[in-house]
Design a protein around this nucleic acid. Structure first.
Length: 630
RNA sequence: GCCCAUGUAGCUCAGUCGGUAGAGCACAUCCUUGGUAAGGAUGAGGUCACCAGUUCGAAUCUGGUCAUGGGCUCCA
């Protein structure tokens, strides 16, 4: 949607003339102009990437002349092209050959020539070439003339593509190119349409930038939460429970730390913390609308004891169907509705970290970021309309506080009414106005995601940025005018009349599973002391210092420090190496010297050798670093 | 769900032409009492993801299933 981030601190400095590569100046007169980009560099890169996509398409057509081209846009960090090659499925081993063919096109240094054709002319041309997807797309374009780009080859052939541009001047500018992967992709992104093959690549202005990008990809792989999760014994998976993590002791510590801290925090700010059922009669989901609109993601089954093969006998019976809840909100509606409510009870804040199940497509599962079983720091506020702004303002404060504790930047956008919406404009004016008021009052800068709200209400989008600058959607604040209607929620106002409350869905971490995954990658496994499952490992040099080691361990443990004692008979170098792999923040080495002095020798994960200090000083140091920052 | 790739010991990976499995680390036992990133010896550990098929014979070839990884409009 909106590419502009008002609070983006990126310097908007004027671009330098790039003399070396001949200036990656793009041609003018195209739909996606210079204005769409924050700065000249981004614009030039976009031109370059879009051009590389054309080079890719030309190469594919050279190798497979009957290939049919679909879309080939520039994307973040690169480009792709969707193609359909009759009788051929590409695999990654084909990339080398395609890349070699691209290099030929690059070497010819073909100019990109732009022309405007009438739609009839374009349809005739692409139809003659068998380019059915281009023909189909031209038919959808609401313009008189379409823009095309032409590349002429040295052998007299040419490559012509329907394209609004912009492009660089010549193909040689796309020389620092690398193809990365192939995958399937549906025509127009719809699984009902035929599936095409997508080739992804990246391209940069200089060889150095390309190498740096490939290096960054490798670095990101090193902090992959799936890899670190295994290395640090945080969680595991098993084939017999796809998409459902097993939280091992160390991972469970972090999971529980976040959850219990949040529960405490909210309980102290006027929330009622509850626990609600996992399994419900499908009537609940029929009421909430999930049965009609979310059924493919709902785990459900007939009540009772059935063996394999009994399914037929269920036909036509009024067997009760049960489902695992995919969200907490419906159960909270039932709690609100469980008795007559007064305006004096509002805002009623319900918090629930219940276990949720969503039957995600098998191909969509991925580590902790996309799971079938998870829980959230989920909460629902039932309030009167004039309470929304205050409630949302408090939430903004909370979200800021929590993410600051993890050293993450939060970017905020107001998502406004979509085209298909529930309720009238006056209602939406008030709803969006309340959110806007809260945002303004927070004194922060924020953007607007126009039309990105849900059909049942506007929301605030939070993008948090991790250590690698990647953005994640975790926190959410969402107004809902739909569920209160579906569950017919009312409260008695001061006027003794019945009123409909507004529901606010809200989460700070979002899914704990996903958030822990993000934290692992954000910190590259090197968690701050306060959230480390193991803060200190005490290790002895030899048996002679076992007693001192034990007493140091006890002193730490008594002070609430999470400590392990490595009293094994391995050499100290070996113990250090073992501990190093577990990213424990402090190692306390205990030998005869420390025994004699009553000290510990400390080695820090982040700062190396800290020398010796008294046991009391070390305990105090770790305790002071264990304070939760939120 | 769909496309591509992958699946061999707890982990990382070898395994040639189809001839019933190998390394390092980890683990166990013993030796070693050693001062800041791997001390030594011995040992145990595998239905080669699962199920079929081809074959005298399958980790290897074929088909299917399951799981994992990458992706499935950041608009010509």
């Amino acid at each position: 949607m909106c590419n502009h981030h008002e609070n983006d601190p990126a310097a908007d400095s004027a671009p330098q003339d790039d003399a070396e590569d001949g200036g990656a100046l793009a041609q003018e007169e195209h739909e996606m102009g210079r204005d769409a980009f924050d700065n000249e560099d981004d614009y030039r890169l976009h031109c370059l990437r879009h051009s590389a996509a054309h080079v890719l398409a030309q190469a594919i057509l050279q190798l497979w002349p009957d290939a049919r081209l679909a879309f080939g846009p520039a994307i973040k960090d690169g480009f792709y092209y969707d193609v359909d090659i009759p009788g051929v499925t590409l695999s990654e081993t084909d990339l080398e050959a395609i890349e070699a063919e691209m290099k030929k096109v690059v070497k010819e240094n073909q100019p990109f020539e732009q022309e405007d054709w009438t739609k009839e002319q374009a349809v005739a041309y692409f139809a003659e070439k068998g380019q059915v997807f281009k023909v189909e797309h031209i038919g959808r374009l609401p313009v008189e003339k379409v823009s095309i780009y032409r590349n002429r080859r040295k052998d007299g052939g040419e490559f012509v593509d329907l394209c609004g541009g912009p492009h660089v001047m010549r193909t040689k500018q796309a020389k620092n190119v690398k193809l990365l992967k192939v995958s399937g992709a549906y025509w127009l992104g719809d699984a009902k349409n035929p599936q095409l093959q997508r080739v992804y690549g990246t391209v940069w202005k200089t060889k150095e930038e390309l190498d740096q990008y490939l290096f960054r990809l490798e670095e990101a792989k090193k902090r992959d939460h799936r890899k670190l999760g295994a290395q640090l014994d945080l969680f595991m998976f098993h084939d017999w429970a796809p998409g459902a993590p097993f939280w091992l002791p160390r991972g469970e510590f972090i999971y529980d730390l976040l959850g219990s801290r949040m529960r405490k925090l909210l309980a102290g700010s006027g929330y009622d913390v509850v626990k609600t059922p996992l399994v419900f009669d499908k009537k609940l989901f029929e009421t909430s609308g999930h049965w009609d609109h979310y059924q493919e993601n709902l785990f459900h089954f007939p009540e009772g004891h059935f063996l394999e093969g009994d399914a037929d006998e269920l036909e036509g019976t009024d067997q009760r169907i049960l489902g695992l809840k995919p969200m907490n909100c419906p159960s909270h509606m039932l709690i609100f509705r469980s008795r007559k409510r007064s305006y004096r009870e509002l805002p009623l804040r319900i918090h629930d970290q219940g276990v949720l199940h969503r039957n995600e497509l098998s191909g969509a599962l991925s580590g902790l970021t996309r799971v079938r079983q998870f829980s959230q720091d989920d909460g629902h506020l039932f309030c009167a309309e004039d309470q929304i702004a205050d409630e949302v303002a408090a939430l903004l404060e909370l979200i800021d506080r929590v993410y600051a504790a993890f050293g993450m930047k939060v970017e905020v956008n107001l998502a406004t009414r979509p085209e298909k919406m529930l309720g009238d404009d006056a209602l939406w004016d008030r709803a969006e106005g309340a959110l806007q008021e809260a945002l303004d009052r927070s004194g922060r800068s924020y953007g607007i995601h126009k039309g990105d709200g849900a059909f049942y209400g506007p929301k605030i989008d939070f993008d948090v940025y991790d250590a690698l600058g990647r953005s994640h959607q975790c926190a959410t604040v969402q107004l809902d005018y739909n569920l209160p209607i579906r569950f017919d929620l009312t409260y008695v106002g001061a006027d003794n009349e019945l009123h409909r409350p507004v529901v606010v869905h809200r989460a700070v971490f979002g899914s704990f599973e996903r958030f822990v995954g993000i934290l692992i990658e954000h910190y590259a496994g090197k968690f701050p002391v306060w959230m480390c499952p193991e803060q200190v490992r005490v290790m002895t040099v030899s048996e002679k210092s076992l007693d001192h080691g034990a007493s140091v361990t006890k002193a730490l443990s008594d002070a609430g420090v999470r400590v392990h004692f490595d009293d094994g008979d391995s050499k100290i170098g070996y113990k250090i190496r073992q501990c190093h792999g577990m990213l424990v923040p402090y190692m306390a080495v205990i030998g005869e010297q420390e025994l004699a002095d009553g000290t510990v020798s400390i080695r820090s994960r982040d700062d190396g050798d800290l020398g010796t200090m008294t046991v009391e000083d070390f305990v105090a140091k770790v305790v002071s670093e264990s304070v939760l920052p939120f």
